[in-house]
Design a protein around this nucleic acid. Sequence first.
DNA 1: CTCTGTTTTACCAGCGCTGTAACTTCACCG
DNA 2: CGGTGAAGTTACAGCGCTGGTAAAACAGAG
Lengths: 337, 337
Amino acid sequence: MARVRLQDVARHAGVSMKTVSNVVHDFPHVSPRMRERVQAAIDELGYRPNAMGRGLATGRTGLLALALADVTIPYFAELARMVSTHATKRGYRLLLEQTDSSIEEERAIVSASEAGLVDGVIFQPAAMSSLEIAKHRSDVPIVLLGEGPAPLGVDHVMIDNVEAATTVTSHIAALGRTRIGFLGHEQGRPSQTSKVRLMGYQRGLELADLPVDPSLLIASGAISAQAAAAALGAALDSGLRIDGLVCRDDLAAIGALRALAERGIAVPDDVAVSGWDDIAMASFTHPTLTTIAADTTALADTALDLLEERIDGFEGLGRHLIVPHRLVIRESAPSAH
Amino acid sequence: MARVRLQDVARHAGVSMKTVSNVVHDFPHVSPRMRERVQAAIDELGYRPNAMGRGLATGRTGLLALALADVTIPYFAELARMVSTHATKRGYRLLLEQTDSSIEEERAIVSASEAGLVDGVIFQPAAMSSLEIAKHRSDVPIVLLGEGPAPLGVDHVMIDNVEAATTVTSHIAALGRTRIGFLGHEQGRPSQTSKVRLMGYQRGLELADLPVDPSLLIASGAISAQAAAAALGAALDSGLRIDGLVCRDDLAAIGALRALAERGIAVPDDVAVSGWDDIAMASFTHPTLTTIAADTTALADTALDLLEERIDGFEGLGRHLIVPHRLVIRESAPSAH
DNA sequence: CTCTGTTTTACCAGCGCTGTAACTTCACCG
DNA sequence: CGGTGAAGTTACAGCGCTGGTAAAACAGAG
């Protein structure tokens, strides 16, 4: 089955290439009769426009890259789904790039070694500082997702992490808990995400007149239930006493539930636990998870809005947008009364 | 920052475009002095090769499409991660296409309306019959994943689902369970995946001299823990009695654990439960899940092997390959003695 | 039946890159 | 010291498509 070119269709229909192109793109000023004739030729020959050719000619590919750490992290999977769905709706297709939070991979994303492949990039950085992002960035339109303070020149969409963390910490404090831990930030240099959530946690404690005790901060080796369970387990076994626990994310919370259950500690009676992200599984843990839910639909949609404007030539300063979030109250940290 | 073209670099270095191209691609027969001079020009101008131009000229894009139902289904996320990682290792980048198991979307995948964008497609069909796939297929190299009998002309990689289902069913039967249910196949027309797993389930029952009782088959409205929990819950509430449960996938199993726990039914003492896929969460349910683990590394790698051969021009009949799987025994259905 | 104004179609020049083939240069050998 | 082949470099013709613009066709008015 030989490749059919626009040329072939044009010859077969006895018209010019441009006319065929016009028919393919539903351009105006094509008489119905002509359209019909050309369409017949297209169908007969099984013509499929070649994306590369079009891409070269128009300077656009209809491709967007989504760069994130790891799709198997449920929140990122849900984000990918959202972005993919919305991108498709807007006529774009999605290239998936996983960085594994490695700084080299992230640099590669930002300073795209190949031009012209994607029209734009949506990037959730984990390792790179905003300063470095600003420095390395190429001329491909880019929108940043996540919690870090984005560089001034770059668009950025996020939820208000500090406020959300404050809310959830206050919620647990309202249950009368006084020794509220934080679980799941990275060992060593915490990511920006962890930092802002820790800030909100601290603020929540202060609002409740609770002391901020560094010994209640439990770092985790990785973003996984396993690592979080191990970290919390070790802390508990070496004497940590808590009655509330704010987790960096739902995976950490799930790990926490496991570690607590294994030690016969009741949730929420002995320890109230909260997660973050409201992944699908959060409704199916035992007990179910109280968590922060970002409006990922708004997140994806907003990011695409900004990106499309950039693609369409907008050159202004970076826009920094906040999308809504809400506290989802479930069994692991129920309402106060 | 104006776009820098190969032409510009060539002029700047005082050489021909082709020489620059040779340097960019590390072609032999370029003198070190020349290489150095050209490289200097490249760095100085900040040249980035244009993927579209190259694509048009070579007929390749270095892009692969991965088409699956939904990345938020953990197994698919893990598959996507594997395929992405291995594809990257081979110099390809991955386009993510979600079909939501819709037959229209799947048709669109198979009969690619645009040519030249991707060099090949890895496709896990959920709705299309193999016959239809064979009929619709375009001339883009394609490799099928999953359980259905693939069309003869198309490459296909899978695990032996029937055997795996037999194994897990036998495992539960070996615990002395006699009323072993199956949970999680689609209502109405079951997918090919469900069909083959049901076949193995049935065969496992027969091997254990257990009757095959259609009332033990519990269909689910969707592939989610939620739907599975609802389905099993309803069945239990209307009198279903089981002491073993083979689930179509880990999500269904997780839903089952929830439904059983809510009714005070102990796992594995009252009901032994098995999942399928060994998603990360399977180690963190309560109790942890006995499950079937496909060798996804082998799956991804094999699929890419086949696809690359097709891309490189292989035209033979479809190869149908089996990759290993194993039974992972955890708390929800422990070993027999 | 001619002229003007509008709709419809055709032509041309690239978009940025690479493959082929031809050309130049150079080292080496008889 | 010319001849020979290998190494290094260049010129050129597209890959398939679209945008701008020129040309043709057509309709309506005089």
